[in-house]
């Protein structure tokens, strides 16, 4: 459904991405692994339209969407949960959720908000509180719930486990799996390689702006090279 072909993106004169190609099949979970500064977030931002690539093409369902603005891409079904969650801290939890459905004009928005609040009871409990008062884990859930309310076909998640306690991280990965099972395709960027690969079908490894390895998640999990570099375990 998503096809990224040879994109190169730069900030000013610094080339961050060099000729990246990747593919996400409908219904799957795909992970992009990489260390800090490898270009993971830049890849996500280029796909969702926050950055424009100097070269290359982004195709969504066969349609060239390169250079479209994020607010246009949300309408075609690509939603990003950005790095650091980016909750609107001056707006209430409920308003954050309503903003998730901003582009929608159907009459099921209320129903959908009820549904996500049932899935995340803490959001229901705190729906009148300002978004900024939530804890990190709660903010991540709010960010994911908010993105889901746009009814995305493809959900991009940029380091959803960042800065969260291990138990909360496990919870987040469980939620990601559930979202996928409910029919949403997921593209995930993570440093938490093991957990990310366990939930995903396919993985890419990014290093200094280039894809240096790719494969089925199970294969990557057992690849000694990848293990050593990204899973913190010496190959034996």
């Amino acid at each position: 459904m998503l096809k990224v072909q040879g994109i190169s993106t730069s900030y000013g004169k610094i080339n961050v991405l060099k000729n990246i190609s990747l593919e996400v099949e409908e219904g799957s979970i795909v992970t992009i692994l990489g260390a800090n500064g490898a270009g993971k977030s830049t890849t996500m931002k280029t796909i969702c339209g926050l950055l424009k690539p100097q070269e290359g093409k982004v195709e969504f369902f066969g349609e060239d969407v390169t250079g479209r603005r994020p607010d246009q891409l949300v309408r075609t079904g690509i939603a990003l949960v950005p790095e650091g969650r980016q909750i609107l801290s001056g707006m209430t939890v409920l308003e954050n959720l309503e903003m998730g459905a901003y582009h929608r004009k159907d009459n099921e928005i209320k129903h959908d908000i009820e549904k996500v609040m049932e899935r995340f009871p803490i959001l229901k409990e705190r729906h009148q509180q300002l978004g900024g008062t939530l804890s990190g884990g709660q903010q991540q859930m709010l960010a994911i719930a908010r993105a889901l309310l746009s009814r995305p076909k493809l959900l991009l998640l940029d380091e959803p486990s960042m800065g969260l306690a291990p138990l909360v991280v496990a919870d987040i990965f469980k939620i990601i799996k559930e979202i996928n099972e409910a029919g949403t395709t997921v593209l995930l960027v993570e440093q938490n390689a093991r957990q990310a690969l366990r939930v995903s079908d396919y993985g890419y490894v990014l290093e200094t702006g280039k894809i240096i390895a790719e494969g089925k998640s199970n294969d990557l999990l057992t690849d000694p090279r990848i293990m050593e570099a990204y899973l913190g375990r010496k190959s034996s």
Binding site: C48, L50, D71, R75, P82, L88, G90, M99, Y102
Partner: peptide, 22 residues
């Protein structure tokens, strides 16, 4: 809705655009 979009834009332009605000 328009007022909320304005507040979202004021707080974080990038996030607002990701949520579909022009």
């Amino acid at each position: 809705k328009a007022g909320k979009a304005l507040r979202a834009t004021a707080e974080n332009l990038e996030t607002a655009s990701l949520l579909g605000v022009d």
